[in-house]
Amino acid sequence: MNDYILKVEGVSHEYKTRTGLFSSFSHKALDDVSFNVVRGEVVGIVGKNGAGKSTLLRILAGVIEPQKGSVWMPESTTRSLLSIGLGFNRELTGRDNAILSCMFNGISMKDAKDISEDIKEFSELGVFFDQPVKTYSSGMRSRLGFATGVISEVDLLMVDETLAVGDAYFKKKAERYIIKKISGKDKSVLFVSHNTKQIQRLCSRTIEL
Rank of each mutant, 00 (worst) to 15 (best):
D96V: 10
T78S: 14
A164I: 11
L163A: 09
K171E: 12
F128G: 00
G166L: 02
K171R: 15
S138Y: 08
D111F: 02
N105Q: 14
S138D: 13
S76P: 01
Q131C: 04
E121N: 15
G145F: 01
G85F: 09
T93L: 05
V154I: 01
G106F: 00
R143C: 04
E175R: 10
F122N: 07
D160Q: 08
Y136H: 07
D114P: 03
R141L: 14
G126L: 04
F122Y: 12
S108Q: 03
Q131H: 09
D160N: 06
P132W: 01
L156W: 05
S76D: 15
F88H: 06
T135Q: 08
S108H: 03
G85N: 06
L92S: 02
Y177C: 00
S76M: 13
M140V: 02
G106I: 00
T77K: 03
Y177S: 09
L144M: 00
G166S: 02
K110D: 13
G145W: 03
V127S: 14
D118K: 13
D160Y: 05
L86T: 12
F129K: 08
A174G: 02
A98Q: 05
S116K: 06
R95Q: 11
L100S: 11
D118Y: 10
K173F: 09
I151H: 01
V154C: 04
S76W: 11
T135A: 04
F104I: 14
T148D: 02
S76E: 15
V127H: 13
P132M: 04
S123E: 06
G149V: 00
A174T: 01
K172H: 13
T135F: 08
S101M: 14
R95M: 08
D130N: 07
D114M: 08
A147N: 06
I107N: 06
T78A: 03
E124D: 14
R90F: 15
T77S: 11
K134S: 11
T148G: 09
M103Y: 12
S83G: 14
E117T: 14
V159L: 15
D96F: 10
V165S: 05
S138A: 14
